[in-house]
Design a protein around this nucleic acid. Structure first.
Lengths: 255, 255
DNA sequence: GGAAGCCTGTAAGATACCTTACAGTTGGCA
DNA sequence: TGCCAACTGTAAGGTATCTTACAGGCTTCC
């Protein structure tokens, strides 16, 4: 079994620069020059080489990540922009409905992540989630964060696995924040990803209340599998202007 | 139970800017101005406000993350710099010893993460890990990545839990890549974090071979708990200049 | 109505960075 | 030794960004 790298040769310093970029997300040329004890121009040359090799992305004054994994994250990030303002509004409204100190399940999804960042600015939550990106939003010193393990499924940092369901069965949570792919005319809440549906249902079963976060763009559409009926949720949070075909509940949750 | 945010009020656009920063890691002012349809100067003002609020960090031409979680990551990243060149060397040497397509356990730690990024540039590995940061280094389309769940323990994205040990007991891996805090004069490999020791031992037990990644700065020191004896490892990877008090094995692994 | 406050856009000078070009250093090789 | 290639540092001029300052539009409130 051959041991070989497909990547082109990198100097020690270039490799170190890559490390820093991957770790910090963004580094300035000045910082790199100071760290390695070389001139800014030398660092610039390294960055140009790495940039041309597609290893990172140049910015004015520094460089940021741009490789396979990060590029996927950017694709993923770009996807967020589609429903951006609506997502943010939904996330903020949902976060405002969560009482302090609650024990929560956080589903996978961009809206949930935005909500997670909103919640992370408070303190004392207990979080169960299958989304690494949602988990990373929290400071472990301010919150108790539990990540339900599994196989890394996509660029979104989501984890899927059979154990997840049974682990959820053994705990009790206050609120499950659930995302979906579609809500059809009859009020069926649906998702494209079958592997995640079981997790969503288990999370709902393990929680006293379930909250569905969905932009109106998901309404009157259909998807592969059914998660639940819209009536199974204690609250459905969407944008204002509820000109949809469904009656929406938006009452604050209480313990 | 009161529902309130401790954070100061943010405009819709400022909040959206934060979202983008958290998602992309770094955004340029031009990109933000174009996205929101406002002038660069307006975006700059938003960024200045957010920066003064400690929500993000200003850079020449854009802004990057700098809030609680990310700041912790930066602290963590700063820590890497202590043993930087040595860590990189160890990581690269270790990665070169791993045969293609191997099933691996990746421990928590900066050296392991650097090694993970090195491995991620190849294809076909099966990865089990308790480190979210290590997991994120891989593209799930090129590798099978399994994250062993647990409680988010620190800024390093590490997960600890009781289930982890028993889950490891049910699988078989080729190589376990293990990190440690110290190796004392008698060859005892030790760690400061007791909660992680059980995981390391379980991973070693589940793997045909174990590889210890350690810079020489860890040698002739001691720590809280013992992981194993240095003889329990199939290979110990450290920097060149093996002027240590221990005989080190650095043989390539084969299946 | 009118003043005050806030947000926004525009413009000019100051600052920081980038590019290009050239020279010094090092190491390999004949 | 002499030559060449690769790497690095320095410097000058161009470009981009930042800062500061001012003006217009909008809302609030008297």
């Amino acid at each position: 079994m051959t041991v070989q790298h497909s990547a082109p040769p990198l100097s020690q310093r270039q490799s170190a620069i890559l490390d820093r970029v991957m770790a910090n997300g963004y580094v300035t040329i000045d910082a790199l020059a100071a760290e390695f004890g070389v001139s800014a121009q030398t660092v610039r040359r390294d960055i140009i080489a790495l940039s041309e090799a597609g290893q990172l992305q140049r910015f004015h004054g520094g460089a940021g990540p741009a490789d396979a994994m990060e590029a996927a994250r950017l694709d993923y990030a770009a996807k967020r922009e589609l429903g951006k303002p609506a997502k943010t509004e939904v996330a903020r409204k949902a976060a405002a409905l969560i009482p302090d100190g609650a024990a929560l399940f956080l589903d996978v999804g961009t809206t949930i992540e935005t909500c997670a960042r909103e919640l992370a600015r408070r303190k004392g939550f207990t979080i169960f989630t299958t989304s690494m990106r949602a988990a990373m939003a929290f400071d472990p010193r301010s919150h108790a964060v539990y990540v339900l393990g599994g196989r890394l499924a996509g660029k979104d940092g989501s984890l899927v696995g059979e154990d997840t369901v049974q682990k959820l069965a053994s705990i009790h949570l206050d609120v499950a924040l659930i995302a979906c792919s579609a809500i059809d005319e009859t009020g069926r809440v649906m998702d494209f990803d079958l592997s995640k549906i079981a997790v969503k249902r288990a999370a709902m079963a393990a929680s006293a209340r379930s909250m569905l976060l969905s932009t109106r763009s998901k309404f009157d559409r259909t998807a592969l599998g059914k998660i639940a009926d819209i009536g199974d949720f204690s609250a459905v949070v969407t944008e204002d202007h509820p000109e949809t075909s469904l009656a929406l509940v938006q009452a604050p949750l209480q313990e």
